[in-house]
Design a protein around this nucleic acid. Structure first.
Length: 586
RNA sequence: GCUGCUAUGGCGCAGUCGGUAGCGCGCAUCCUUGGUAAGGAUGAGGUCACCGGUUCAAAUCCGGUUAGCAGCUCCA
């Protein structure tokens, strides 16, 4: 039996044991819904009057162990749809599942002992004793919605960790603990990168160090776009309501917008997206086919209202900066342009050593526009993705596209394995129509361009959150908010430290010097805790020889007597190359 | 928005049975003048998130609000 099959099989089987335990504990009026396996175990959704809390965990775990010790046989039976409906009488979620199946369907059910039956495709174990060695522990209980729809019943979801043995469970719990240590919310406060204030929920305050990082990232991003012929623009944050009516946001996105009434006749709204800005710039003059593709990039701040429970550090905010661009193309330029964007994304992500997944979202039911154009666009996107990732290298979400066009999304995972949407490439046939965009074709007729919305980071905020967790706060040299810390051993060495500081300033190295009369050990400790890549310790020897002693982040042994010019040249090279690793020799 | 949980000096936390608050780090002052991650002494700093209720008395009990955390839903 291969390992993956074994994992899935016992986790899935354990979910049945959990359901049986909950029913035995809280009675037969428990409604049990579904219980699939997940990456680190399984869960099961229930509806019951009793609110399951932490105090119940032990009782549930004990009941599960008790059930396993009964060594009951698991028997599979095949039943007709009608028999199944009768068997699960009173279980509304099971009934709903069964009723969705075709009339003539044959269903498989599994008995655990004589008294518990669950609807299930299987496969399962043959006897509970096969599960006696499984190490499991309740993770937590949370709310969930029946069939993932917030309009349906709210259920109680019991998550359980489950591993083949105790050691693997312990390793996993250790891993989770370690992951919490690099949570960007924790590190962001510790490293003084950003903060929040109660008066502006989900709107980050960037602290001096965080803003340095932000700007280092922005500089890099701007430079990467120069060879791809992007032009950066900036537009108003507030616009009169009429603009949003034209764009369709007023009708489709109003509850995601912050709205500012001025007087009875005037209402402004804060932009949730940059598109209308780029469109107005496009429309400001008559456009020729010779100008296309026309690429406007934009990093203005945008605001989107989120429901209260949805905010999450920098990952989910109400005020953020997208690394946005709007590209106006002819229909036959779409494929090349998308390919160019994918190349930019690949280069940029590689600089950070990040791995990502690609997803294609296709035409939804409520699509707008010409179906032939949709088909052609989807085919283009699919062909590019196949070229870049292979036929199986990306996922397709059928019908998940926006009503105005299909899209490619690029996703990454945070420290707890949660998937976040980062980069996005969206084709838009609708806005050019709403704003009546035109260009003059070679034959002198007016044609409509296609609009491509795209972001590589997704948003600077979310991307920085991912970077913090990915690097555990130990940023590559070029990105580090403070790149070099200078520690004079005694106050009489401050003059030499000042000389070094001036040199750093001249060479645009981000640095700090500690001129205080503290113990040098304390100064070094402060910089080490700040995860500064290089701490330069200087005393008499260094001042005499014009050298520095270099304490390298993550390296035990220090470098002594490094000539100042050699160090400066080394760090300049790292900045230039956007190196991931720190140099350990100069 | 939904389910559960949380809120005590700048940060991390303690505070039992209701009797108006403590610890560590940090900060300030002084001493120590140091060669690579915590030298010593003294001191300052808190309407216990906010509003209301119960009580002779509330950080503590109850209700509400706000903000945050995990999950769901939604999203860059």
């Amino acid at each position: 039996m291969d390992k993956e099959f074994f994992l899935a099989n016992y986790r899935h089987s354990m979910a049945h044991v959990l359901a049986k335990a909950v029913i035995e504990l809280w009675g037969s009026d428990v409604q049990y819904a579904i219980g699939p396996q997940v990456d680190d175990g399984f869960y099961y959704d229930f509806k019951l009057d009793h609110m399951i809390t932490k105090d119940d965990y032990k009782a549930i775990e004990n009941k599960m162990r008790e059930i396993l010790k009964r060594k009951e046989a698991w028997t599979r039976k095949e039943v007709s749809r009608a028999e199944a409906l009768d068997l699960f009488k009173g279980q509304k979620y099971k009934i709903e599942i069964i009723e969705d199946l075709p009339e003539d369907a044959t269903l498989s059910i599994y008995y655990t002992g004589d008294d518990f039956v669950d609807l299930c495709r299987g496969p399962h174990i043959d006897n509970s004793q096969e599960l006696l060695g499984v190490a499991f522990q309740i993770k937590f209980v949370s709310g969930s919605y029946w069939r993932g729809d917030e309009h349906n019943d709210q259920l109680q979801r019991v998550y359980v960790y489950a591993f083949p043995d105790k050691q693997q469970l312990k390793d996993h719990l250790d891993m989770i603990r370690e992951a919490m240590e690099r949570d960007h919310k924790k590190l962001g406060a510790e490293m003084e990168l950003f903060m929040f204030h109660e008066t502006a929920p989900g709107m980050p305050y960037w602290l001096p160090k965080g803003w340095k990082l932000f700007n280092a990232l922005l500089d890099y991003w701007r430079n990467e776009h120069v060879p791809h012929n992007y032009q950066e623009i900036s537009g108003p944050v507030l616009s009169e309501k009429q603009l949003w009516i034209t764009s369709g946001h007023w009708a489709h996105y109003q509850n995601g917008m912050f709205i500012a009434p001025i007087d009875e006749n005037t209402t402004y709204a804060i932009k949730p997206m940059n598109c209308p800005n780029a469109i107005n710039v496009y429309r400001s003059t008559k456009r020729s086919y010779k100008e296309l593709p026309l690429r406007y990039s934009q990093v203005d701040v945008i605001h989107r209202r989120e429901k209260s429970g949805e905010l999450n550090g920098l990952f989910r905010v109400q005020e953020f900066h997208q690394d946005d661009a709007h590209i106006f193309v002819t229909e036959d330029q779409i494929e090349d342009e998308i390919a160019d964007i994918m190349d930019i994304a690949k280069t940029i992500y590689a600089t950070f050593g990040l791995t990502y997944t690609a997803e294609l979202s296709t035409r939804p039911d409520d699509f707008m526009g010409d179906i032939a154009l949709w088909d052609q666009a989807e085919a283009s996107l699919k062909s590019i993705l196949t070229k870049k990732f292979g036929a199986d290298g990306f996922e397709i979400n059928e019908g998940d596209g926006a009503f105005y066009g299909p899209k490619i999304d690029l996703g990454m995972r945070d420290c707890l394995g949660r998937q976040w949407q980062m980069g996005t490439i969206q084709l838009d046939f609708q806005l050019p129509l709403n704003f009546n965009l035109k260009y003059v074709a070679p034959d002198g007729t007016e044609k409509q361009p296609v609009l491509i919305h795209r972001a590589i980071f997704g948003s600077f905020e979310r991307f920085i959150g991912i970077l913090i967790e990915n690097f555990k706060g130990q940023f590559p040299f070029w990105l580090a908010p403070v790149q070099v810390g200078i520690v004079p051993i005694r106050p009489e060495h401050n003059a030499y430290a000042k000389k070094l500081a001036d040199l750093m300033m001249k060479n645009h190295i981000r640095f700090e010097v500690d001129y205080s009369d503290q113990n040098m050990k304390n100064k070094i400790k402060k910089y080490k805790l700040g995860r500064i890549p290089y701490v330069l310790v200087v005393g008499e020897k260094e001042a005499e020889q014009n050298t520095v002693a270099v304490n390298i982040r993550g390296v035990k042994d220090n470098l002594f007597g490094v000539p100042v010019e050699a160090f400066m040249q080394g760090v300049a090279e790292m900045n230039e190359a956007h190196s991931l690793e720190l140099k350990t020799a100069f």
